[in-house]
């Protein structure tokens, strides 16, 4: 079974040279730590920065340079700043190639729910609805089951939706799955996890074709 860093490390393999990538808050943010140095990639943060770098050294924080999680960050050579409409033009206009974000639920037809739990405090969707409505390639990073042990890969989402029919791939602590034809296709198993374990943790329709390889990093 993978931990959060393991999920991030596996997703980092999906980042190809030449990609502009938007990383959500949580596990997705960790992905930047595992992208190989020889991959040419630029990270976009929707508050208005392309070419985001690591956190600043102590004493070098700048209140005017933050990411979408409101954390102080730095810029890489070649970075740029822009307004929020330009930022979402990059996203809505499909100039950003890959969006990686967390989720509470994903359904077999690619719907995603990640912004609201009825009866609990609603903090808002931020840029998530714009991101999932636009990107051609959306990878969800999440645990396979919730705290009560219930599957988060469902036939239909039970929570209010963030977007419909948009998720293309899901990487969890147990597996890598592709979402197509209204089904989850099992592509890889996490180290030490059996196909049976994945089946029992998946409520949505799971397609298992042939021998399923263990992930390698």
């Amino acid at each position: 079974m993978l931990d959060k860093n393991g999920i991030a490390k596996r997703i980092a393999k999906e980042v190809k040279s030449g990609y502009y990538v938007n990383l959500g808050i949580g596990i997705p943010t960790l992905v930047a730590n595992f992208v190989r140095d020889d991959i040419e990639v630029e990270f976009q943060s929707e508050n208005g920065i392309l070419g985001m770098g690591p956190f600043p050294f102590e004493g070098e924080e700048d209140a005017d340079i933050i990411n979408a999680g409101k954390q102080t960050i730095t810029t890489m050579p070649g970075a740029s700043f822009f307004d929020s409409a330009t930022s979402f033009s990059m996203i809505r206009g499909k100039h950003v190639h890959l969006t990686i974000l967390g989720a509470m639920e994903v359904s077999e037809n690619g719907d995603i729910a990640n912004w609201k739990i009825p009866g609990k405090m609603v903090k808002g969707m931020g840029g998530a609805m714009d991101l999932v409505a636009s990107a051609d390639h959306i990878i969800v990073a999440m645990m396979h089951t919730n705290k009560r042990g219930e599957s988060k890969l469902l036939k239909r989402c039970s929570l209010p939706l963030t977007g419909v029919g948009c998720v293309t791939k899901v990487v969890t602590n147990l597996a890598v799955l592709e979402v197509k034809n209204n089904q989850f296709y099992l592509l890889e198993r996490a180290p030490g996890i059996s196909v049976e374990e994945i089946k029992s943790a998946t409520e949505g329709t799971l397609i298992v074709e042939g021998e399923i390889p263990e992930m390698n990093f």
Binding site: P54, A63, T72
Partner: peptide
């Protein structure tokens, strides 16, 4: 004042 909401740094 330009208050920082999440001060995140890395170690040298």
């Amino acid at each position: 004042e330009k208050r920082i909401e999440q001060r995140t740094v890395r170690q040298r």
